[in-house]
């Protein structure tokens, strides 16, 4: 008899535990401890000299791409960004080391959250081999020290189920809502403006934005504009005005990124026309760079 080993194909995942999700104390504990994991200061003003906000966006977007390409668990990217922000809030860092830091943060977040974590070699390849595995491992220790080994940070993703569960949402739309919320959370993580917000507020704002965006409020009065915001604010003890502002900010960031996507597509088309020799390469690029968002099935 032959033995088959199919382990490589499966991802081991814990099922959502109704005992944890149904207990109000869990949500309250998350709300109590979440502030502990926020970056200590707005570091572009007080710590960093070499690094600017647009560079954070660059490294964040690269990290998001790597996580997507490697099919990482959803919370890996926001968690890695939390590590990155907390490190940058205490250690002045050179621009040329920022990508190494991003890789280290993904390395750590992936180890914490995944059954099959990203390898050091793979991450180094993603930096186009500009860093070495040995350096990644050394800096892992530096980052761990600066984070005081507090890796189990609260992320917005931790709140999704708790919030969704407490809303009168149509059962058949739940998966779609979750996906949209996760996308909004990832989007927020790429924007420095959100780095100092408590994760619960980002989660609540993202749920609000997802429900409004998906126009699920047609039948249920509780999900109409202000009603929804009040309901959401109550779930996570957020101030209604702050929450509203947060949600609007999320929607604005989304609009900007959609516009940027369209601009990139336009630019690419122009390049195709002016430089036919690059066409084959660009076609390849476009196949993996869907820019018409309506075509994207999340």
């Amino acid at each position: 008899m032959e033995l088959y080993c199919l382990e490589a194909e499966t991802v081991v995942r814990a099922r959502p535990d109704p005992n944890l999700l149904g207990d109000d104390r869990v949500l309250q504990s998350l709300l109590t401890i979440e502030e502990r994991f926020l970056p200590q200061c707005s570091y572009f003003k007080c710590v960093q000299k070499d690094i600017q906000p647009f560079m954070r966006r660059m490294v964040a977007t690269w990290m998001l791409e790597v996580c997507e390409e490697q099919k990482c668990e959803e919370e890996v990217f926001p968690l890695a960004m939390n590590y990155l922000d907390r490190f940058l809030a205490v250690v002045p860092t050179r621009k040329c080391n920022l990508q190494l830091l991003g890789a280290v943060c993904m390395f750590l977040a992936s180890k914490l959250k995944e059954t099959r974590p990203l390898t050091a070699e793979k991450l180094c390849i993603y930096t186009d081999n500009s860093i070495r595995p040995q350096e990644l491992l050394e800096w892992e220790l530096v980052v761990l020290g600066k984070l005081k080994w507090n890796l189990a940070a609260v992320t917005p993703n931790d709140f999704i189920e708790h919030i969704v569960k407490r809303l009168p949402l149509p059962e058949d739309k739940l998966d779609l809502i979750r996906k949209h919320v996760q996308t909004f959370i990832a989007l927020c993580a790429t924007e420095f403006n959100f780095a100092m917000y408590p994760p619960s507020m980002i989660a609540t704002g993202s749920v609000g934005a997802a429900i409004c965006g998906l126009q699920l409020n047609g039948t249920n009065h509780a999900l109409w504009g202000d009603n929804l915001t009040e309901l959401l604010a109550k779930i996570t003890n957020t101030e209604v005005d702050l929450l509203k502002a947060c949600q609007e900010q999320i929607e604005r960031v989304l609009m900007n990124s959609l516009r940027e996507g369209r601009r990139q597509q336009h630019k690419q088309q122009q390049q195709d026309q002016t430089n036919p020799r690059n066409k084959a390469l660009d076609d390849q690029d476009q196949s993996s760079t869907p820019t018409d968002v309506r075509d994207i099935n999340l």
Partner: peptide
């Protein structure tokens, strides 16, 4: 929604 990083 956008394809996240790819669009961004």
């Amino acid at each position: 929604l956008p394809g996240r990083g790819r669009v961004l």
